[in-house]
């Protein structure tokens, strides 16, 4: 019998698959569906201080090897967002992760405190959105000091809910950022956000297709980069990792586990397989483990590090 159960900062998951933030998670209803479709935990879309429409369309596009998006942190603001979290916590039968963002550390702390009152199982700090640089500057997760300042500010205001720092692959200081957020009190790391930003140009229109011109790249094309990032973070810190980036099969998920991920984020794969991808990926993980005599996924965490 194969055990897929995972643990993340004291929270028990029936399997390691986590619906990534920004995918489906606009409402309690959609993340409930992801949970019913087999996800081990589900993350809502990032909530910020104020209602925000984000970038105009086109915002999300498919391309040859994945997706590119510049949604631009659209959200209903922290009060309405907290109500959505509350409803999700009430309805969804697996752990609910609330994601938050703001333009500065104090803003983060205020949003985190408001959202924490809705009692999500975990609170994820989106330090790494690549699509709002015009407004918010370089993402916090590009640099150890800025990342740690946000985690520290939130840690001082929120008690009793584990904090997940969502990092970015787009920094040459990744190990330092990981150590900095661990030092500032993060209970886990989500590694990580979209790659890039990238750009798609329509030859016939002679223009970038995204209204924001550039956007975060996700899907199968980014997986090798994301696996290497998880590897580096695993070497740098002791706190558990959610490995996210281009997972669309059980083998992909186990690759992240062997790189050091205790849990595995799934996002873009929903574009091709629908919410049903969770059950399929979990089944494929189980089948590989059975065929290879592995009884618990926990045995494989970091296995590739030798």
């Amino acid at each position: 019998m194969v055990e897929l159960g995972a643990q993340l900062a004291g929270v028990e998951l029936r399997n390691p698959l986590v619906l990534a933030s920004g995918v489906l998670g606009v409402s309690a209803g959609t993340i409930e569906r992801a949970a019913e479709s087999g996800a081990g935990a589900v993350t809502l879309k990032s909530i910020g201080p104020k209602p925000r429409a984000g970038h105009p369309n086109p915002t999300v596009l498919e391309w040859g090897c994945g997706l590119i998006n510049a949604v631009g942190l659209s959200n209903p603001g922290m009060e309405a967002g907290a109500r959505e979290v509350e409803e999700a916590v009430r309805r969804v039968k697996v752990p609910v992760i609330a994601s938050v963002f703001a333009g500065d550390a104090e803003g983060f702390a205020a949003v985190a405190e408001t959202v924490a009152a809705a009692k999500p199982a975990l609170l994820e700090l989106n330090l790494s959105c690549p699509n709002v640089m015009g407004e918010h500057g370089v993402p916090f997760a590009y640099e150890p000091g800025s990342a740690a300042a946000v985690v520290g500010a939130v840690k001082a205001r929120v008690r009793g809910i584990p904090l997940v720092a969502k990092l970015s692959p787009n920094t040459h200081l990744l190990s330092g950022v990981a150590r900095a957020v661990e030092g500032a009190g993060a209970d886990a790391i989500n590694m990580g956000n979209t790659l890039g930003p990238g750009m798609i140009i329509s030859l016939e229109a002679r223009r970038p297709v995204l209204a924001n011109k550039a956007g975060g790249v996700s899907g199968p094309a980014v997986r090798p980069v994301a696996v290497r990032c998880v590897w580096d973070v695993f070497e740098a810190v002791k706190i558990p990792i959610i490995g996210t980036g281009g997972v669309s099969s059980g083998r992909d998920a186990l690759e992240f586990v062997m790189a050091g991920a205790a849990c595995v984020g799934v996002g873009s794969a929903v574009a091709w397989g629908g919410p049903a991808v969770f059950r399929r990926i979990a089944g494929e993980m189980r089948a590989w483990m059975e065929a290879n005599g592995v009884s618990s996924v926990k045995e494989l965490v970091g296995a590739a590090h030798g």
Binding site: V23, S27, V60, A271
Partner: peptide
């Protein structure tokens, strides 16, 4: 937004 079921923007309940 996306048109193909990934962003969740057009949700009606869980659909």
């Amino acid at each position: 937004k996306c048109g193909f079921g990934v962003c969740g923007q057009c949700a009606v309940d869980g659909m």
